[in-house]
Write a protein that binds this DNA or RNA. Structure first.
Lengths: 228, 228
DNA sequence: GTTATCTTTTAACCGCTATTAGAAGATTGT
DNA sequence: ACAATCTTCTAATAGCGGTTAAAAGATAAC
């Protein structure tokens, strides 16, 4: 039980910086240790999405962060805890990012327009902002129960947002009748999540993907009279 | 170089039975060895989709097939070759299944109807027919280059089918103008592939998912005048 | 029923990777 | 400069899992 020396921030598991604004430049008034920790966490996210849960080696993570593998143990007690933080942070950030985008919409915004906003936010978070969200969606199915059980709590909260969006659309009559929202919702999410698998900046611009996805979804689920 | 004793069928890599008809009962006039080989291949597909490329242990595969791990080496020279066969067979079967469904459509079938057929076939292959297709879509991103390079050949052939479908739709004016088919196509595939991640028989019937997906896609991509 | 072949098993081997121990390097305050 | 602490490194440890070797069980031919 090596709980004698205390690494900087070693509470339970989840830790995340405030939702990043728009441009890069993370970390200003941080100590070097904090920056190393963040660099390692990011490296873990990248490596995790590239190699998968079982394939991610601590050596790779260290290399990606410019550090020797054992240095990781100064910040996390085990590989599992590191991965757990990656997936938790990934899920939380995605939810916060989408929630923030929706919250910024003026009250009274039609449900389908809010859907567009959510699509935009989800796709951008997945494709550019964060290796974290990417790491999550590529690995949820393969995570060991111990990790999954804690991550799924956050995931459910996120799913709740989407359920809400579809519920609004149903309530306002904007969703095409005959469409089961409980099936339509995960199917739509699939469009977004799978984009992370095939999209590359060389292939097309993010904007184009976002616009096309929005267009397909809107036409795909909107009731006959409900177009902007 | 242990190439002295010759396992039954040990040519290059790919091997696949004829596209299964409709019901189960595979294998009639097969020798016991052949059946064991198939059982192992299937076990590998199942284990691969559950644990991922790096996570699939030969012990797990053996257990799933009711055999000790080293028995696998009687049929394949290495773990890598086994996995390569799984992903190749998975890709090939998916393509053949969809191609067969499309080929069965009467000539002159509108492009959007053919799209419905492809959606139906792809989803069913993914959700019930085969653990193989499932293993493929869950692992393509994490496969080592050696395996991927040979699998991607088959994948491209399959992608060609979908590209063709969208090209037809564009040509006949059935695709909504302003929609980039090169973006719409992978986005639509995402709906289908991601279904494997969330769908479970307890949640809904396959028929319902297929119908909803078809409905969303048709409305999502069809030109204003083109509904059946 | 005996022999040759096919199939599977048990018992090592070996490399790889998470983890630990303990020794350096930094860093900071005085 | 010096000491205390924080951070990272190098060098071992330990167990897991792919692979191999060789023996044991089937199977079929004669």
């Amino acid at each position: 039980m090596p709980a004698l020396k205390g690494p900087p921030g070693s509470s339970g598991a989840a830790r995340h910086s405030g939702s990043s604004g728009s441009s890069g430049a993370s970390g200003e008034g941080q100590t070097k240790s904090e920056r190393t920790r963040e660099r390692l966490l990011h490296a873990a996210a990248v490596t995790l999405s590239r190699l998968g849960y079982a394939g991610m080696r601590l050596v790779d993570v260290g290399e990606e962060a410019g550090v020797q593998a054992p240095a990781i143990y100064y910040y996390w007690p085990s590989r599992e805890q590191l991965i757990e933080e990656v997936v938790t942070v990934g899920t939380v950030r995605l939810r916060e990012y989408v929630a923030a985008a929706l919250a910024a919409a003026p009250p009274g915004t039609p449900a389908l327009d809010r859907l567009d906003i959510a699509i935009d936010a989800h796709l951008r978070q997945l494709m550019s902002e964060s290796a974290f969200a990417h790491a999550v969606i590529r690995n949820i199915s393969q995570l060991p129960a111990a990790i999954r059980s804690r991550q799924i709590v956050e995931e459910r909260k996120y799913a709740e947002i989407w359920r809400g969006l579809f519920a609004e659309a149903v309530a306002s009559g904007e969703l095409r009748s005959g469409l089961d929202p409980d099936l339509a919702q995960p199917l739509i999410i699939g469009i977004l999540n799978w984009a992370a698998e095939w999209w590359s900046p060389k292939r097309s611009s993010i904007d184009a993907v976002v616009a096309t996805a929005q267009s397909i979804v809107r036409h795909g689920v909107a009731a006959p009279g409900s177009f902007s």
